[in-house]
Design a protein around this nucleic acid. Structure first.
Lengths: 354, 354
DNA sequence: TCTGTGTGCGCAATAGCTCAT
DNA sequence: TATGAGCTATTGCGCACACAG
């Protein structure tokens, strides 16, 4: 109900509390802020009045007076994906702990203008800082143009950004997966790349390539994916199944691995007996893929939490005793390999040396 | 009168724009609000000043003056799950369209106090309304106690809530799945229930039971799940695989179906030849399960959008010409069956009539 | 038809006032 | 007279809106 005329049921304000308690509004303020110089009996009277009226401080007024909104923004490409959704969750958890609010701004596409538009919307709302879950190179490029007085942290967007960032070490993860397959005896490892416009995809590809080169294994042509979906994995899987040379595939994420598993098996080739598959992400379902997927684990939750903490350390929070550092940290979190059953030794060690 | 001569780098305010443009702050305000009565040349001068200073209206001040925050809150149990994540996305999309901000409050557990706590936090921030993605009965119960002056909409939380709600017709969806299996020739259909503390689980179970009864099919004992995870599906799947009577299973969601598929196949029974499986939700991966999953589709995105629109219609938005209805609509969206390959006719029609 | 003045939104912070010791 | 605990009075934050001119 929208009240304007009948001021009877207007939300109570500090003055109302003061009146009921028989004190000045400033005393009310002191009570609410736990200032020492208030007599215990006065404090009680005030608190009683607060309870009686159901008084709730007006955030806008406080913001106006303190110049602090205690609100942080999150820009995300697609909160529907497992990774972003988890990071958002981690961010929100941590924000609550630090008593910040979180406003989300989802962007449909990661082009320059829509990202800058999202930044703009959040700034208009008065956010004190922004976390970006926008791993595309274009987005990161666009963000470089954002005025420096807007604290920004990129999360899960690769480790080579100019922005402050928190991310899993994609290269290390890809190396982990690739080396694991090589150690099993595979002559080489094929790679289903994520979309190359994503930093993560680039870094995972680099890690895969590096691992092969380090071991002197032949480097096959990477299979480029247009997106991260199971469909793309499926399409590549159909081609891979037809290629008898392929014994091991490292997929840039679990969704693609799922599609690939399906295509390969539909084509009559067995996993892992004929083809070993390793994914990346470790979404909860991977354990129940057929077969359960060996994959590289990212702790998205933790990424989100770390990102929020990093942001708060940049903006500073006097109330929590955190000084504004203004630093641009690059936090890199090590991934880990989760071994399940989708990868094993190759059946017939490929002897062909060309 | 202390002019703020010292703090040079403070964000510009309307008065600064007015000074630069050589007009009053009121004229600036008029320009920004597209009032007609401003001469074109004046308008230009003002806009030039706005650009020059990089002026950005202060949201807190506007809120204080207008008593509107243009912010809505979303409470979600677990934004990590596919459904909630999608609904959140739909909500955010729609919010942007209506020029609202969205603040999220994730709750770890859906007990009474944490839900009420989330409501409280959002109200403290001044949200104009709240969308709840909290399908547990306890949560809905708790929300009944929220003062009526807080517009609330529950989304994806079953259709039988006291709150305003937007949801898929779970019963109809479950009937769809069950009838489909019966039509294929199965004597009866087993059901892997979701956690009974969720309205959706209850409603799907009711739909399943109703469909069986309507057709005079025997009603087996429902298999109770403690949660919605693939793990739970897997555990029940192991038992189901051992029961030769079972030819068709309707799972309350896709995750559980995935686990069940896996367990059943590991036990050497084939899907769909030996056991037909139907899920609920239609997450993007289901097409690539082995076999691809026949399931009941919920349009989560649409649910989120409808929920937001419903909320805006409750709170009203004079700027968009939407009057405050104050109604508590119950919007029910029909689900649809997506037929893939995980269900088929039973191989040997069970002839036992006792 | 155009533009300026004044006031209030609810809170925080500062200065200042009144009693006690 | 000084000190400080316990309170009051006043101003300003930046904007919108009613009411002028």
């Amino acid at each position: 109900m929208r009240r304007r005329s009948m001021d009877v049921d207007r939300a109570p304000v500090m003055a109302d509390v003061a009146r009921i308690a028989g004190v000045s509004h400033q005393t009310v303020s002191r009570v609410l802020h736990d200032h020492p110089n208030v007599r215990a009996t006065t404090r009680e009277r005030v608190l009683a009045a607060v309870r009686e009226l159901g008084y709730r401080p007006n955030a806008a007024a406080r913001t106006l007076a303190t110049r602090r909104t205690r609100t942080l923004g999150v820009i995300s490409f697609n909160t529907t994906l497992y990774g972003p959704a988890c990071m958002l969750y981690g961010i929100e958890q941590a924000a609550r702990q630090y008593e910040y609010f979180v406003t989300v701004a989802a962007v449909g596409t990661l082009d320059r203008s829509s990202v800058l538009d999202a930044v703009d919307r959040l700034r208009n709302q008065g956010v004190e800082g922004i976390i970006v879950i926008a791993p595309q190179t274009a987005a990161v490029g666009a963000l470089a143009n954002v005025p420096a007085d807007v604290p920004l942290v990129a999360v899960g967007c690769g480790t080579h950004t100019a922005l402050a960032s928190v991310a899993v070490d994609n290269e290390a993860g890809a190396e982990l997966a690739t080396s694991y397959l090589l150690d099993l005896g595979h002559r080489t490892v094929h790679h289903l790349v994520g979309p190359r416009s994503w930093l993560d995809a680039q870094e995972r590809e680099a890690g895969w390539r590096g691992a092969l080169e380090k071991r002197g294994a032949p480097v096959p042509r990477a299979l480029a994916g247009a997106d991260w979906t199971a469909r793309t994995g499926y399409e590549h899987g159909q081609r891979i199944a037809a290629d008898r040379e392929v014994t091991a595939v490292f997929c840039a994420n679990d969704h693609m691995a799922l599609g690939l598993l399906r295509a390969v098996q539909q084509a009559g080739r067995r996993v892992p007996e004929d083809i070993s598959v390793v994914g990346f992400d470790d979404m909860p379902e991977t354990e129940y893929f057929g077969p359960s997927l060996t994959t590289v684990r990212q702790d998205f939750d933790e990424l989100g939490r770390r990102a929020l903490r990093a942001l708060i350390e940049i903006v500073g929070d006097p109330d929590a005793g955190i000084p504004a550092s203004g630093d641009r940290p690059h936090i890199v979190i090590p991934p880990s390999l989760v071994v399940r059953t989708s990868a094993t030794r190759p059946r017939h060690r490929t002897e062909s040396t060309t």
